[in-house]
Design a binder for these strands. Structure first.
Length: 803
DNA sequence: GAGTTTGAAACT
DNA sequence: CAGTTTCAAACTC
């Protein structure tokens, strides 16, 4: 296997490297990949951090650099590889590592895209190596973006490169992958494109400015010419933080199909901060990274299943914003509308398995149900039009699944001041014009039937929805929240037309859900950043707006980030602690509720602004926090470096007096050891620490005691309850309580007979009514006395036998 | 429950 | 970036 230089590998995100289950799936079928330049203007995605960008692009043109590789649409296996070091490799070899195939390869479970026809794309390295990557081409304008960086940068870069729309032809189309530069040098992989597409670029000029060190090479026919060349692109070392982008643009030659782009962008943080990867859908394919022998193989799988009948839909884009939390996985599936769509069957599964992030986007028409395979080898038939695939995810990882129920145009929406990316979904009917309201009116929100994908660790994220936003896009009754039988999936919220939302986007807090899209049966569900994880269903705090709710009462969703250092199950099962803030108005990170992305609920705080009533202030506060620290809402406990503890504090603690053995210490509180990045003094929170061990033993013992006590209480309660249920109710009588079961039906009948007899007697004797009543009541009293007497006697007998 | 301690967050 | 202040949770009594 051909491997790009280790230095390049080092640039790849760690998440990518963690990906497992590289699967070779030779795809015999070679199908035509068509993509067409779309008029859609992609919404630039925010960049987590300004960085130098390194870009891999598969573009038309001849590769000039030494590490140039060609991607050819042939029946061979193609490999896109990246090393753990953040290096992105596109290597091909007969025994290809990377396979672009229609099904999600991660799972052995059969993932069938019944309607889709797999096209094979081969990647050849310098003509010496060929990699076949079968993939399906999505409708026009579909874009797949794996991006941690602002899309704007990528867009700009694309503009500079002048290679926006890329077209992959069915046969013989050649893709050259040029790895330019050595260590740290930007690599651009770009599919051959038909022509420039102004405004359609996903990349922004920021790339150039921020990351002068990337080089884009377009391969046009046999001629290779550098698309972008910056001074630093040759062998210079990348900046501390570098952006890597893999862009694959597909464009149908003459068809109306819009180009499909695949961007894999990574920002490499010199500090080793958790990089994030976003995979926009629209293109299935599998990128297998890590061919480096030294590094454990990590795989990014992009499976692109494309039926031969597939026709690209112009203006259709899917951009998945980078995940806020590395440990979260966002899965977005966009389903084509069942309506009269030109598309007969489109399956655009994108399965990306990245260390802690997996983004899977699969798009298909309603006509062709798609099976989704999860990493757990779980294959489900999702409703037609919806399919989500997730692969290779660790159990503890957070994942967000947001199916998009309709054929939609997806646009990235950037919220100024935040790093969150939003996805806009536009129904197919209005797909023609991007950026315009797709739906007839917001008032009509159709029933959305989001599907959850069964992945053990998958959970739906429910972003916080500001009331303000919801006022405009308040979910209509039809909106449905569907959860699968699987454990951790949660919510799905319908996407709303951009125009309605957009005005508020600047104020949207991270995790805001784009609301239900209007328009006929085409309701899209937009995901929103995984930043906020929902408390839906499980949480008593969650309030979902329901049908008929006035806009002002619109959804108040309790969103919650995974508690730091806690697993999903833990965070969800453990009740949230109410805060006691008094001065911060619960709008600063002092407030745990706010810090966790939650609204205050049942708290003890004073002058709380962390609620819908003060959404403006709240949004402003969120923005302020993010400006101050973009990582502010990220979990503090993340994955440590290789060889270190699995979990560690992202910043480390600064304890001075607690010895890091009290809950003052965030590390100790998270039940993790202090790490090298901690600045604590007198730390005793390390593996061999006797104090810590003692403390742990005590804690364990205490926990055991608590559990035992709880169990005992539970058992006792159960017994009492059982006893009460079995024991008939009693009536009080003197010293004790007598079971009223003595008042049986027979007793009642007898009593009534006695009373009737008394009445008859009075009637026969022609007693006045008053006298008759008195006699009856008197008899009733006698009856009661006899009953009580009998009950008392029975009780005594029962007690004597200890019953 | 009040007061103290602690360290993160916020501020300068 | 370092020092200081503010803040709320953790802790003690």
């Amino acid at each position: 296997m051909d491997v790009v230089s280790p230095e390049l590998n080092s640039l790849l995100p760690d998440e990518i490297m963690d990906t497992e289950s590289i699967e070779e799936v030779p795809q015999p079928n070679t199908t035509t990949v068509q993509s067409e330049t779309s008029d859609d203007t992609s919404v630039p995605m925010e960049t987590d951090t300004p960085m130098a960008a390194e870009k891999l692009s598969i573009c038309s043109g001849a590769a000039s650099s030494e590490q140039t590789r060609s991607l050819t649409t042939t029946s061979t296996d193609s490999i896109l590889g990246s090393s753990s070091e953040g290096q992105i490799l596109i290597s091909s070899s007969p025994p290809s590592l990377l396979t672009l195939k229609s099904a999600l390869a991660t799972s052995t479970a059969s993932t069938k895209t019944t309607d889709s026809v797999t096209s094979t794309t081969s990647v050849s390295t310098s003509g010496l190596q060929k990699l076949t990557a079968p993939f399906t081409i999505s409708p026009a304008n579909h874009q797949i973006i794996l991006n941690k960086v602002a899309s704007s940068q990528a867009t700009e870069a694309a503009k500079t490169a002048g290679t926006l729309p890329q077209v992959i032809k069915q046969d013989g189309q050649k893709l050259l992958v040029t790895t330019i530069g050595k260590t740290g040098q930007p690599i651009v992989l770009q599919l051959p494109h038909m022509g420039n597409r102004p405004g359609g670029s996903q990349t922004s000029g920021d790339v150039k400015s921020q990351a002068p060190q990337f080089k884009v090479v377009t391969i046009g026919g046999k001629e290779l010419k550098p698309m972008v060349s910056t001074p630093g692109n040759q062998l210079t070392t990348l900046q501390a933080q570098q952006l890597k982008t893999v862009q694959i643009a597909k464009k149908s030659p003459a068809s109306s199909a819009a180009p499909i782009k695949l961007f894999i962008t990574k920002t490499v943080n010199s500090k080793g901060l958790t990089p994030q990867t976003t995979v926009p859908a629209g293109f299935a394919g599998r990128v297998v990274t890590q061919t480096t022998p030294v590094m454990p193989p990590r795989t990014i799988t992009l499976s692109d299943t494309h039926s031969a009948s597939i026709q690209s839909i112009p203006g259709k884009k899917i951009a998945i914003s980078p995940l806020k939390t590395p440990s979260k996985v966002t899965v977005v599936s966009v389903a084509s509308p069942t309506s009269s769509s030109s598309l007969k069957s489109v399956t655009l599964p994108v399965n990306v398995a990245i260390n802690q992030q997996i983004l899977a986007v699969q798009q298909s028409t309603s006509v062709s149900p798609v099976k989704v395979a999860t990493s757990q080898a779980t294959v489900q038939n999702i409703k037609p039009v919806q399919s989500v695939s997730v692969g290779g995810v660790a159990a503890s990882q957070f994942k967000t699944l947001i199916p998009l129920a309709t054929q939609t145009n997806v646009q990235q929406i950037q919220v100024p001041g935040s790093r969150f990316h939003y996805v806009r979904l536009v129904t197919a009917t209005t797909a023609s014009s991007t950026g315009q309201p797709s739906g007839p009116s917001t008032s009509s929100i159709q029933t959305a039937k989001p599907m959850g994908v069964s992945t053990g660790a998958v959970r739906m994220s429910v972003p916080i929805v500001p009331a303000q936003t919801m006022k405009q896009v308040a979910p209509k009754p039809a909106a449905q929240v569907v959860t699968t039988t699987q454990t951790q999936q949660r919510l799905i919220m319908p996407a709303t037309p951009l125009p309605q939302i957009q005005p508020n986007f600047t104020n949207l807090p991270p995790g805001t859900v784009l609301a239900p899209a209007p328009g006929g049966g085409n309701v899209g569900y937009a995901v929103v950043p995984a930043q906020y994880v929902t408390q839906l269903q499980q949480s008593p705090y969650v309030t979902l707006a329901s049908t008929g709710f006035p806009a002002s009462n619109a959804v108040q969703t309790q969103a919650r980030l995974p508690l730091n250092g806690m697993s999903t199950a833990e965070s969800t099962s453990r009740p949230r602690k109410p805060c006691n803030c008094t001065k911060s108005q619960c709008l600063k990170l002092y407030c745990d509720c706010f810090a966790n992305g939650e609204f205050c609920n049942n708290c003890n705080c004073n002058n709380c602004f962390n609620n819908l009533e003060h959404e403006t202030e709240r949004l402003k506060a969120i923005k302020t926090c993010l400006e101050r620290n973009p990582e502010a809402f990220k979990p503090k406990i993340g994955k440590g470096k290789e060889g270190e503890s699995e979990r560690r504090h992202s910043k480390g603690c600064n304890c001075k007096r607690s010895g890091c053995l009290k809950n003052y210490c965030e590390c100790y509180e998270a039940k993790i050891m202090c790490s090298s990045i901690c600045k604590c003094i007198g730390c005793k929170n390390f593996e061999e620490s006797p104090e810590r061990k003692t403390l742990m033993h005590l804690a364990d013992a205490a926990e055991v005691r608590v559990q035992q006590q709880t169990a005992a209480k539970t058992k006792l309660s159960s017994q009492i309850s059982d006893l009460l249920t079995r024991t008939t109710p009693v009536i009080s009588s003197g010293s004790g309580r007598l079971p009223y079961t003595f008042v049986t039906k027979e007793v009642l009948e007898a009593t009534c007979e006695c009373l009737l007899e008394q009445a008859k007697k009075a009637e026969q004797t022609h007693q006045p009514q008053a006298e008759a009543e008195r006699l009856i009541l008197e008899e009733f009293g006698h009856c009661l006395m006899r009953i009580i007497s009998s009950a008392g006697k029975a009780k005594a007998d029962c007690a004597s036998i200890n019953c």
